[in-house]
Each structure stands twice: as C-alpha cells, then as structure tokens.
Design a protein around this nucleic acid. Structure first.
Lengths: 208, 208
DNA sequence: TGACATAGTGCTCATTTGTTCACTATATTG
DNA sequence: CAATATAGTGAACAAATGAGCACTATGTCA
C-alpha cells in the first residue's frame, strides 16, 4: 500500500490532474507555484519529489512539463480500449452514426466488447426494462444488426419511435416485451413500420 | 471544411497523437525533429505553424510542450482511461488490493469515475440487489471507504463474509437492506464484527 | 523559364523551465 | 528541550526549449 501523502501534496496532485484534463498537457513548476501562491519553485519541487517517491507521480528529470499521474501503480495511459460514439437519439430515416447525432464518446476496455467493435452507446430513457437490470439513465452499448434472436434485448424503430425491449417470437408473431409489470408487450403486425436497429451487448451505470 | 494537409504534416500530426497517448504529455520540437531525423527545429516549427493555421493543432506561444490536437473543431478532450484492479474476493484480515486477490484489470473512461480514482472492481455473486439493477455476474466498481451514507449501496464484511447491500440507518440501528423480496434485511448488532469496505460507484454488464 | 510552394539547414539568441543551496518558520515527537 | 518533519523563501545558475534569419534544394504550375 502506498505511503500516505500530506494534505498539501494531495492538493497539488489534484491540481495537476485537473490541469492535464483541462489543457491536455501537464503544468510546469512555475505554474503550480503560481496556483498556490508559492514564491519558490524549490518548494514545489520538494512536493513533486515526495509524490514521485511515494508512487503518485512520474516525472522525467531535466525535461519540461513531464508530470504524469500514477493510478493503481500504473501511469494513466491508454490500454487496449475502444472509443464508442454515444448517440443522443435514434430516429427513422437518417444514419444513426451521423455526425450530428453523436453527443460524445465513451472509452471502454476492448475485452468488454469481445468481437463487437462497431457499436455505439445510447442513454436509456424510460423504465421499461428495470427487471432486466437496466435503469433509466444507464448507458447501453448497442451492436447494430437488422435481425434479432429470440430473447435478445434490442433497440428497434416502430414508425418514428425508438424503443428498447426484449425480442420474442411466438407462433410466427413478433412481440416486444418490456421487463416491467407496468407495461404490456407490443405486438408487431405484419404491415407495421418496424425495424431492428441493434442488440444490447452491455450496460453501464454510474452513481456519481 | 479544413484545408488539406500535406503528407509530411499528416505524419507529424500522427506522431504527436501517438506520443500523447503513450506518454501523457506532448513532444517538444526537438523530439519531433529527432523522430523524423530533422536537424533543425525551425523546419519542425514551420510544419507546426501550418497545422495550427489549418486548425489541426493548438499551441501556446513561448511555452514548452503545449501542442494539443484539435478534432471536430475542438481540442481532443483528454479522456484518459484508468485501469481498475478487479478483485476476486473480499476477505477479512487481509488488504483487499493484495496482489494475490487481483484477478485482472478493467479499463474505463476516467470521466466515468469522477474523482474516484483509487477504486477496484468486484464481480457480483448472488441476486440480492436485482431491484436496484445489479444482477449476478455484473462488475461493480467499489470506492473504498470505511463509512457510508444512508441509502448508499455498500460492500461490507460481517465476520468473514462479504456482502453487498443498501446501507440504511434507522433509530440508531444499522440495516443492510437487500433489493430483492426474497431476502430480509440484516440488522447489525453493536457487538457484531462488521466493517464497511466501500461503496458502489458504478455497474458494468456484458451480454457476451 | 520564372514564380511559387514545400521541405529543409545552420546557427544564434531569448525565454522558459528545472535544479540546487543556504536559509527561516512552525508543528510534532520522544 | 532537542531532533525531526513539513513547508517555505530568495537567489543564482544550468539546461531545455522556442523563435527566427538567411540560406539551399526540389517539385509544380502557368
């Protein structure tokens, strides 16, 4: 377990982290000194050296601007991750991954996706799937596909409306089955404007 | 639409991007020169200036190491991922993050964790929290803390047994409340061997 | 063929940034 | 009360890094 760091060291560490997040590059000693109203870069260097020694930072000697944070004994760096586009809404007629639909991206461990690399994220609206452990506000990962297998949770369009339900086929009829007693299954009539967008392959929830 | 960039400019842009991904901070002119076997930093500066002008890079004047990439007219919002250790079991008496407990790691978008960087993953065993959208087999992210707030979902030890429940305090009594009608709340008696490991800050589920 | 664009050199200098020393002040601990 | 730890200053200096000039070489285009 790492040594404890002092309150001042923690403040400096947090500042470095925020600075990197905001700027895309780390601060210099003088920038840290300015932030904490310190007159001497040597005072800053003492704190930095302590944080490096205690395993919270990396730093290159005799180079400018090379502070980098260490988390869980690893420098923060990209592992084998995939960046997934997060889509705001699914609508009829236009490509889901059209640029104007993309609200951001979400990075996730590549192993989590298996072979499904061409996928996208979608925020859950509504509570129709709570018995399947999918709550409002969750981020679901959708693998685009036009057909589904019985029992899969899918995102589909009925007319212009997007919906996420379990896909069930019985007696040659298609049912979109909610996992919440409050709602009834939707029966898809043959002539209905219905299309499958994709299936849910993952769920993410943050309690922050 | 942005102006076209030359092949050489594209090479330099890619190098900068890879360098930032790998190191957590951008290269200097001299490091770029070294990479491309250029003898003069002025040649590098000419390319950088062109990329800035064409909208592919940002750079601060008279500062070292401040190159940052611009994507979709926005600087790449540094979204580093964090590797979280995944713990196999939580047991009494030994440090949770002892090396022998760690089964692997899981990379996740740092923004997902907010300020909770020192955390770990835990596979869910049991179905006591299904009404809270947490199913058996899910991966939950635990922020270590020794005390909890009313209503938080926590991981705790009762004797040698680890459990995940909602933490509820009523009439000066502590209850560990399942979110499944099949189970009853656990009352924590004052002399009981009980300790809180941490709180749940995120949930991940894969359907692969 | 000349103008222009692209790509680079050699070099010097200005500025930024990191390193270090000897010192002070305050709090904690044995 | 002395030793130690933490936190800092003032200052000087070394090294890193950016800025910029006058030049050359090559390819493209009108």
């Amino acid at each position: 377990m790492k040594e404890e760091i002092t309150d001042r060291q923690k403040e400096i560490l947090n500042f470095i982290q925020d600075y990197v997040d905001f700027n895309g590059f780390p601060p210099t000693y003088r920038e840290i000194a300015k932030q904490f109203n310190l007159a001497s870069t040597f005072g800053v260097k003492r704190h930095i050296d302590a944080l490096v020694k205690k395993g919270f930072l990396n730093n290159a000697n005799n180079s400018s601007r090379t502070l980098s944070l260490v988390v869980n004994n690893n420098p923060i760096q990209k592992g084998p991750v995939v960046e997934i586009p997060v889509v705001g809404r699914v609508a009829a007629g236009q490509p889901i991954l059209a640029q104007e639909n993309i609200e951001g991206t979400f990075s996730i461990d590549k192993s989590f996706l298996g072979n499904h690399l061409q996928c996208f994220g979608l925020k859950v609206r509504g509570d129709s799937m709570i018995n399947a452990g999918i709550l409002e506000g969750d981020l679901v990962i959708i693998q685009p596909q036009k057909e589904a297998v019985n029992g899969e949770i899918i995102v589909a369009l009925i007319g212009d409306d997007a919906t996420m339900k379990k896909y069930v086929v019985e007696e040659n009829k298609i049912f979109l089955v909610p996992e919440n007693e409050k709602y009834k299954a939707i029966v898809i009539e043959n002539d209905e404007d219905f299309s499958i967008i994709g299936k849910v392959i993952g769920v993410f929830r943050s309690y922050n």
